[in-house]
Design a protein around this nucleic acid. Structure first.
Lengths: 165, 165
DNA sequence: CTGAATATTTCATGTTGTCAAGCAACCGGG
DNA sequence: CCCGGTTGCTTGACAACATGAAATATTCAG
């Protein structure tokens, strides 16, 4: 059923591997610019959206909670994050970004040029197609609506939407 | 200039992040099945294609050579890899998979279902489109990818299939 | 109240990563 | 030939990340 040896499929798989590698590089580099490790940047990014209990962070990172303790410790010792008690459950500690942590997270997000940068080379229609293909690859079946084109790759100008680069 | 706020672009960026996360999960899981870490699996995968000097491995992994020493040490102690002298240069040690290492690498490659599995849901035409979009995203403008070994531009070939990290 | 389950931390241990220092081997002049 | 500079690999010290087991505090169900 699955075309394992299909050269086209293999090439796509290879390309995805390259995308993954590139993504990592960018991520680590952006983190390093702020003297953060990849893991620290990831946690800070999570908390910037919303404060979280330690165990939730562990779930997001897919690691043991005991690991998160250390990562948050380091962020806290730099004043980027603080632990607060959860009023609803005294066992729980909520990790939340400080003001400095929030701005660092924002700069970090902004620096994450990958995929935004090269995406500029694609037209609006192409980006739409890419979005759909990725969604299907990930098993998110196209449901959310706002569906128009799909399929029309060649028809150039997405102009109005976002020219860029 | 860059449409940072363009919702379509942001969604694609988000999707790519998800793809990266999924890829990692699959990779680590497949490695763990063989009691290997991600880094070990990556190195073994590299060597399965072709024995390499330590420094080349470091370049592919984008890390310091001293790090590679440890990783290869662990692979060697499990009998998956061996160090051989390079007849052309006695400073160099070539890391090469043993027979067992080769078969482990093969099983590992076969287990890497991600992106092949879900790609089955895409038609041939869709996969072709996806391939092209990814290539352009990566800045490989539509020439063929047949550059492989052949020490391309002197110092930093970097290209190819170096997944992760 | 008692006992099971949950949330976090601490400790021991192993892997990955960096950097600096060291050794062996190659190389290009003199 | 020898000599200094460079290259390839390893070693050592150290930090971060990751797991697992045990300890503590709190919640919750009976």
């Amino acid at each position: 059923m699955t075309p394992r040896t299909d050269p086209l499929t293999l090439e796509v798989v290879e390309l995805i591997g390259t995308v993954v590698a590139r993504y990592h590089e960018e991520y680590e580099h952006a983190a390093a610019e702020h003297a953060l490790t990849g893991a620290q940047a990831r946690v800070l990014g999570l908390l910037a959206r919303e404060p979280l209990p330690m165990r939730r962070i562990a779930q997001r990172l897919k690691c043991e909670p005991s690991n998160v303790t250390g990562i948050v410790d380091r962020l806290e010792s730099r004043g980027l994050v603080e632990r607060r008690p959860d009023p609803a459950d005294r066992r729980v500690k909520l990790a939340a970004p400080t003001e400095e942590g929030r701005s660092t997270a924002e700069e970090l997000r902004a620096a994450l040029g990958f995929a935004r940068e090269p995406l500029g080379g694609l037209t609006f229609a192409e980006r739409t197609v890419l979005k759909e293909l990725l969604r299907r690859m990930l098993g998110m079946d196209a449901d959310d609506g706002a569906e128009d084109t799909a399929g029309a790759a060649g028809t150039d100008p997405g102009e109005g939407a976002a020219p860029l680069r």
